[in-house]
Structures are given as structure tokens and as C-alpha cells.
Simulated assay, not measured.
Amino acid sequence: MLGYGLIMPLLPFIVKTWVSDATVIGLLGSLYAAMQLLAAPLLGTLSDRIGRRSVLLICLFGSAVAYLGLALAGSLPLVILAIALGGAAGSSMPVAQAYIADTTTAERRAQGFGLLGAAFGLGLIGGSAIGGLLSQYGLALPPAVAATIAFLNALWATIALPETLPPNRRRIQPVRLTNPFAAAVTVLTLPQIRPLLGAVVILNIAFAGLQNNVAYFTMTRFGWGPEQNAVLFVFVGLCAVVTQGVLLRILQPLLGERHLAGGGLGLMALGFALVGLVHNESWRLFPIAAMFATGMGLAVPALTSLISLRAGDRRQGAILGGMQTLISIALVIGPLSFGFIFDQIGPDAPYLIGSLMLLGAWLITVLTFVQPTPVTTGSLHPVEDSEA
């Protein structure tokens, strides 16, 4: 994630050499997410067959090649190729999670996953800061540094990273291509969680669109360069870390998941609307960014917990896996749709429309708890809500 944080805030400035088009930037963001959606399940299955270490090394070396290609790209098609390779190579989260599952006890597994998530978050923040600093010396330098970091990381892993899946525990079946959308279709058939899944999808479409488009928005409206956008990305990341690491622990026992989900979505909706209304004083983006970063930091874990509670304990893995697939689809839709709306309607339109979408997600969440939980006759038995 350090390399990803180095590159993404700079993408509009890199692409500007050949085209000044929000739709193209959105397409690149959607391409990155689409490659992750397609590659992640394949890499996870491959790691069950040939081992975690081999797949992680492939991903690390692949990321190094992708970043180097972006640094040396002399045309837009080469940038597209580098982004596609970077998305595929960067979809190693399932393999990293499996590595942790192999090396931790059941009691310490949640802690291991938490450390992995914290490492990804800190990498994103640190990458944004380093990318903004290095961009002063040329836009080719940040991806070159990202390539160097990825290559050194790959070399270190080659020497020091042990294999955690011995041959006698590996799958002997050949790796087959699977339908990445099957899990999403399955969870959408369950009425007790379908509305909340809809809210999660809407939230992620809006946030992915903002994350991909906001640097182009600030560039065209305020004349911001890579350095100012890097500061904004770091600020948003720090707000999210404080929210999930401190604020959530305080508010969850007091308010519960239902109120946190509704309040978080409300903050996000208000923040998106205010972004679209900022025309002159760019400093106002910082308190607004804190608003929607805090809202997201509250809403996402609360909605995830509510979905888990309503699903029951027989198919937690399948339900949460299906939800992750839906989130991945949302990450593909968001960047391209925001870029297209930006070009066709205007710079304010994606954020005002995003605000209306988030208001819809808020309404869905509120109405879900006004109505009784549907009863299903399938193998998944709903449980009572913690605050019902």
C-alpha cells in the first residue's frame, strides 16, 4: 500500500501529459479495481496449490515492474498497461490473510488481521506523504521510488520470508477460473441482509468515486498540485485512523451499531454535499474531508457488524466474502461514473449526486430497523439485532 499511496494522488498529473479528461482518470481507477476483483480469488486459490510465499513473491515483483513501467511510460497505452499490472499484482490481500491464518492461533488471529489492516492503512498514509514530497522533483520519481521499495521488499521476502503452507496441506486439484460474481449473487438472495448490503454498495461507490476524482477536482478548481493533494490524502487517512482506532471504541458502547451506521452515513452525505459547494477558499476542504472520513470510519465497521449479526453464525465466511465481492464491484463502478459525470455535467455534480446516493443509503439503513427482520427458510438463520 505504500506504493499505491505514492501513485494514486499523482495519477491525474501523470495522465495530464496526454489527456485532460476526468473520464480517462476514472477509467484507470476502475481498471485497477477490476484487475483486483478478477485476480484476487485466482491468487488465493493458487496459493493453496503452490504455497503462500511463491504467490506473495510474484505479487511483489509484479508490483515493482508495474511501478517501474509507470515511471518510464512514454504514452497513455503504457500507463494503462502499468495500471492493469499494478492492480493484478496488488490483489494479494487474500494471500496475506491466508499467510496470517497459517501462522496464528485462533485466539490471536483477529489481532493478526488487525495488524495487517493497520499496516495497509499506514502504508497508504506514508505513501501519500512521500509521493507529494518527491513530486517536486518530477512526476517520474515517485513511481520509480515505489518500484525500488517494492523490489527491495521482494528481495527481502525472497531471503527471509518462510513458507507457511507445507506440501502435505496443499490442494492437489488444478487451479480453475471461478465466477467472481457468484458469491455476490448468493448473498443478495438473503432478504435479512439485502438492504444493508445495498447501503454498503452505495457507500463504496461514492467513496471510490471521490477517492479517484478529488485530485482532479482540486487541480481544476483550485489549481492544486501534487503536494497539496498529498497533504489532503494524508489528512483523510489520519482522520480515518483516529476514528477507527479511538473514536469508534468510545462511541460503540454508548450508541451501538445502528446509530453509528446511520450517523456515519449522514456525516458522509453532508460532507459530499459541502465538497460540491466549495468554490473559493480551498482550506474548507480539510474540515469537510474530516467529516466524511469520520463518517466512513464509523459507518463501515458498524454496517459490517450489523450484516454479520443478521446473517447468523453458520455462514459468516460466505456472507462476508460475498459482501467483499460487492464492495469490489462498487470500487469498479465509482471512479468511472464520477469521472463521466464530472466531464458531462460539471465538477460539482459527482459530489452532489454522491450526497443524494448516501442519503439513500442512510434511508435504507434507517428503514431496515423500522421493519421486522425477514425470516428465511434457507440454511442461514438470522439472529436478533443487538439493539432490537
Rank of each mutant, 00 (worst) to 15 (best):
G123N: 00
H381E: 15
T243V: 15
L309A: 08
G74S: 06
M296F: 09
T189K: 11
L238P: 00
S63T: 07
G264K: 01
D385K: 01
L359R: 06
I7T: 11
G44D: 00
R109V: 02
G126W: 09
G354N: 08
V19T: 13
T368Y: 01
Q316G: 12
W156L: 14
V375F: 01
A98Q: 12
L37M: 15
P382G: 12
M93I: 07
L152V: 12
G138M: 00
S54W: 10
I172Q: 15
L196F: 10
Y99N: 14
Q192I: 03
A144P: 02
R284Q: 10
G334W: 04
A82N: 04
G3F: 04
L380N: 15
I364K: 03
A230C: 14
L165R: 09
L247V: 14
S91I: 03
G262S: 14
G29W: 08
N229K: 06
Q252E: 13
V370W: 04
H279C: 08
L78E: 13
L78S: 14
D348H: 05
P143L: 03
V383I: 05
S92H: 06
R171M: 10
I202Q: 01
T325R: 02
L133R: 07
P77S: 11
E281W: 14
A199R: 01
L70C: 04
L43W: 12
V370M: 11
I159G: 10
G114L: 13
V246E: 12
L134P: 15
A289I: 10
G26K: 07
I333S: 03
L85E: 02
A240Q: 05
F151G: 09
A361D: 05
F120D: 05
V370F: 09
A293V: 13
L326K: 02
V19L: 11
E163R: 13
L38A: 06
S63G: 09
V236L: 09
P167F: 10
G198I: 13
